Amino acid sequence: MDTGRVSTGTESRPPVTYVPLSDAVLPAVDMSIPPWPGEDRTSGGVRMHIRVTPGPEDAPTAVYVHGLGGSATNWTDLAAQLSSRVPGISVDLPGFGRSEPQPGFDYSIAAHADAVARFIRGLGVGPVHLLGNSMGGAISMNVAADHPDLIRTLTLVSPAVPDLRPRFSRMSDPRLAIAYLPLIGASVRRRLAAVPVEQRVLQLLRLVFADVARVPQSRKDEAAAEFAERARQVWANPALARSTIGLFRSWLVPRSRSMWTLAPRITAPTLVVWGTDDKLVTVRKAPRTARLIPRARLLVLPRTGHVAQMERPATVARAVLGMWEQVDTGNW
């Protein structure tokens, strides 16, 4: 089981509250299990490819939203850890994974959030536990702020809050950071496409993990298969490029519409998780994010990168369960 320590740090004005981990006994993480079976489903007028994690029928549903360039498979291990408590639905956002986008979809954060909200509402399962990583975290913040009736709790793993000073020097290959920028990104993408797929997978893993040695060969093989599948999808590269632009635009809006202004409107109990070695969205944004969301608590994990739910699934699961337990007892 993952036993990564939790940093408690010190913050002031106002202080950040750090989340207690659950004492629940969880199964050992088995990263050899394949992704959960997938299916296309239409809900709320939105068609997406999803992966369903079985769980207790009388429990609330967890919905998992991946980040930029990711897919529903980013949640395989965390969903497995939580499956004894809740059933789960991991979505492929429009244009990602195996979700073919509907004509006219504009790939803005608002459009992605609207698609997720409509899909959740159409499920008819009541308020859900919503979990989002990176761009999926930004999308989930929008859903929670605009549709509070849909959200039971919110978990944000390195959410893509505005970070206008990315630290490219920490990246193993800075080309990955600029491949989807407007104008200059196209030529970089062409050069990256010529790199052998195994090397591209390793570059990506080095970007999002603090320690690539934690990634078993089975997961590397799955990532390589996804790379090959996306290369055959005519919508994949345009969706990634335009979603990247949509994310950057959400960072540059006037303050009145900023994500920092959105955060205080979130009323759901919220867990914010960040890795100290996040190369994409600096952990320096973690305390501010947790302070601005009224009912948020923070978990900072040492020696962890941008995808804590993949790198330390057991620790993140214990934190999520800790939140759920405290919410159930009225102590959050």
Rank of each mutant, 00 (worst) to 15 (best):
S22M: 10
V125S: 11
L204E: 10
V19T: 11
S108E: 07
P54K: 11
R249A: 12
A193M: 12
V6K: 00
P14Y: 09
N237C: 02
G97S: 10
V91D: 03
F96G: 01
V316Y: 06
F119S: 04
T73R: 09
G104V: 07
V46M: 11
V273H: 04
I120N: 03
M310K: 01
A177G: 15
G44K: 02
L207P: 00
S140P: 07
V63E: 10
A263I: 14
Q326I: 01
N237M: 14
G95W: 01
G44M: 00
I89Y: 01
Y18H: 12
A111P: 01
L123W: 05
E39N: 02
L292E: 13
T73P: 00
T244Y: 15
L240P: 00
P287K: 08
F209I: 08
V52R: 13
V234D: 10
T8G: 07
S108I: 02
W251A: 07
G95E: 06
Q102D: 15
Q233E: 10
D149R: 11
P34D: 15
A231I: 05
G88N: 09
E222I: 13
E39H: 03
A236D: 08
G55W: 01
A296M: 09
F227E: 04
S83H: 10
Q326W: 00
V197T: 13
E229H: 10
P15A: 15
E11A: 10
I139Y: 04
I109S: 00
L262Y: 01
T8M: 13
G136I: 10
G55L: 05
V195Y: 04
S169D: 15
V143D: 04
A144Y: 00
V91R: 01
S32W: 06
T270E: 04
S140D: 09
G67V: 03
R303C: 07
G104E: 09
A228G: 05
S256P: 00
G132D: 09
G69V: 03
L183P: 00
R295K: 12
S7T: 11
V197H: 04
T153H: 02
A186H: 14
W274Q: 02
Q81P: 08
P14R: 11
A59T: 11
Y18F: 14
D221T: 14
L252V: 08
M171F: 01
R312F: 15
V116T: 05
V125Q: 10
A144I: 02
P103S: 10
D92C: 09
V128N: 03
T289S: 06
S108H: 01
R206C: 13
G305F: 02
P196H: 08
T282F: 03
G44S: 03
R232P: 03
A186L: 11
V63G: 05
S32H: 08
R242W: 15
G124P: 08
E57H: 12
V281H: 08
V91T: 10
A111V: 05
